[in-house]
């Protein structure tokens, strides 16, 4: 009466399903990255490359305020300061701003800056052609450095956005960097 064959079949199928769901947990990671990249949801900024940059037209009618913010993650003995608190910009035009970073201790440290834009809806419209966050930064003991960001604000920036904040946080660099924009 007891159907040993079909019991085995059911258990094997269910075990397979378990493995699939385990894999699905991992699959959520790239899915999430893609989702965020497309929607700009986690505040990561956009990029702009030379070809595109040449065709920019400035919108002189509109003035948007960008605030610059800087943070240091807990375990990094650096100081980071934006050299200007804010800037009023015309969409479609390139601007450069600088940050000053200083290593406070007697040790060479590699750091990595992570950008974030608020409100998130604006993040993909802030397009950078050059940024110190594109690569690791090395600071010698006590060294002070000027770091540059070059960006433009896209003309398609939604109408309601009057001001936005660009924030950088420096972390101690980890070995296995994923692509950072």
């Amino acid at each position: 009466m007891i159907k040993v064959r079909s019991i085995k079949r059911t258990s094997v199928l269910l075990s397979l399903f378990t493995l699939i769901m385990f894999g699905f947990g991992y699959a959520l990671v790239p899915l999430y990255d893609v989702f965020c990249e497309v929607t700009g949801l986690n505040g990561k900024t956009g990029r702009i490359y030379n070809e595109e940059a040449k065709q920019l037209i400035t919108d002189n009618q509109r003035l948007v305020t960008i605030h610059f913010d800087s943070n240091i993650n807990g375990n990094l003995a650096w100081k980071l300061k934006a050299d200007q608190k804010f800037l009023k910009v015309n969409p479609g035009k390139f601007y450069s701003v600088t940050y000053t970073v200083e290593n406070m201790i007697n040790e060479e440290i590699v750091g990595q800056a992570i950008p974030s834009v608020s409100p998130q809806i604006a993040s993909l419209y802030l397009k950078k052609s050059e940024c110190f966050c594109f690569r690791n930064q090395v600071l010698k003991p006590g060294e002070q450095k000027k770091l540059t960001v070059r960006f433009e604000l896209d003309r398609d920036l939604p109408k309601g956005v009057e001001s936005l904040t660009l924030s950088y946080t420096f972390f101690k660099a980890v070995k296995d960097n994923k692509k950072i924009s």
Binding site: N73, Q112, I114, F171, K172, A173, V174, N177, K178, I180
Partner: peptide, 8 residues
């Protein structure tokens, strides 16, 4: 770096 912002 699944969850570490420093690694992306």
């Amino acid at each position: 770096s699944f969850f570490s912002a420093a690694g992306g």
